[in-house]
Design a protein around this nucleic acid. Structure first.
Lengths: 237, 237
DNA sequence: GTTGAAATTAGTACGAA
DNA sequence: TTCGTACTAATTTCAAC
């Protein structure tokens, strides 16, 4: 299972915990930078590219894995080549108090590649990969519609995936804080990595959670209030 | 080259291209299955898990990479640990005839992890990872709003990422076609991969593209028509 | 497509700076 | 902590079957 709970690497924790077990310095970020683009690089080559000794690279590599900063290593597969030419996004409104059931059902659907709980008009967005358009229809009408937790859905097809970065890092915008100019796209490269797969951690949980339901204009951005039942999110899930 | 004449193995092709250079048999899928969960496994261990000889595994492994079925290998990084605790989805309405500019600008934004062109109310969805909520605001108002190609945006925060599968494969639902019962979630594992970063290729391009703009009820699914300017998608991009 | 054996490389375990 | 080296184990390559 690929359930992402929000806790640290090896230990389970409370949902609210964010604890940092490892201070990531510039060298750590550099390692992550190489690894996200070439997950299969040897530690020796990694050490050379980062500019540290092999022994140091092994130590840091292991630390990053143990800490959970590196969750797992995966191969990016061409879905079209693999026979899954259709990608769709399904926005789901979940009936309050039924989040647990919804998550359980999700785990039973192998065509679901990604699911995130969001603010806004809907409660969750799921991304599915299937062989044909009919399969999307079947998925929505047969599978999702039969889940009591699902109140409503809205489907959108993905026509093209313009960009997919392995994983964004803070170092992408320099050592500093936020809004600065990017140093241009550092795309090319190859990465390699090794290690057992583990449950993913939680994403950011800050932000306008538990909003009131009213639209709150904030500059050009529209914070669409969460749907009813969102307040139960933490207790229910 | 024999059968791969129309697409090259290592090179990206035109957006409309779907060509299949390599026939993926059950063994290939099995290899992909292992690799997506453990991208850093050795080819020797891979051979053992798949049940083929080492040499065979090397041959197939290389073929999958050359063919492009495996695009690259990457490390999944815990964004929170890496200092990017906030994830948001920004739905963008793009001004017609300006897709090329939009895409060019995207490449200049390192905080963008993913961008897909969609049907529906909006034209594109981008996922960003940043350090704090303010950075999202800055991103939308300062960066996106200043792109002439961007007509409007709508932002939604991700409160939790419930599920992330390395990559969905057709074998997940058995050798057959579509809607069947999943064999339960085969999640855990770790993946390793290697390869240069590249711009994402086109996803499935079928579906209700070039729709009229009217809502077409189809079972429980709502096909929201594409926004104006979508017709220029292929020529413009 | 498989097996086995050689050459290379990776991973580990020390000390020393 | 980090580096450098030596030792051990594993992997990749290449041969023949």
């Amino acid at each position: 299972m690929t359930e992402m709970s929000r806790n640290s690497g090896q230990e389970g924790g409370q949902p609210g915990r964010i604890g940092i077990g490892l201070e990531l310095d510039a060298t750590h970020l550099k390692i992550l930078e190489v690894l996200r683009e070439n997950g299969r690089i040897s530690v020796a080559a990694l050490a050379e590219r980062v500019g540290i000794s092999r022994a140091n690279a092994y130590t840091r590599f292991e630390a990053l894995r143990a800490d959970g900063a590196i969750k797992r290593f995966t191969a990016e597969i061409d879905h079209v080549r693999a026979g899954l030419g259709i990608t769709a996004l399904i926005f789901v409104t979940v009936r309050q108090q039924m989040w647990r059931q919804f998550r359980a059902q999700l785990a039973q659907m192998p065509e679901v590649e990604y699911c995130a709980i969001t603010t806004g008009q809907h409660d969750a967005m799921i991304q599915v990969r299937v062989t044909d358009v009919a399969a999307v229809h079947a998925m929505v009408t047969d599978r999702l519609a039969n889940i009591p937790a699902v109140k409503a859905t809205e489907t959108v097809f993905i026509l093209d995936e313009v960009l997919r970065r392995p994983y964004v890092l803070p170092s992408d915008r320099g050592p500093g804080r936020s809004s600065r100019r990017p140093p241009a796209d550092p795309a090319a490269g190859s990465a390699r990595s090794t290690g057992p797969a583990r449950s993913a951690g939680p994403a950011g949980a800050a932000g306008p959670a538990g909003s009131t339901g009213a639209e709150v204009p904030l500059g050009m951005m529209r914070f669409v209030g969460a749907a009813e039942g969102r307040a139960q999110l933490q207790q229910d899930v």
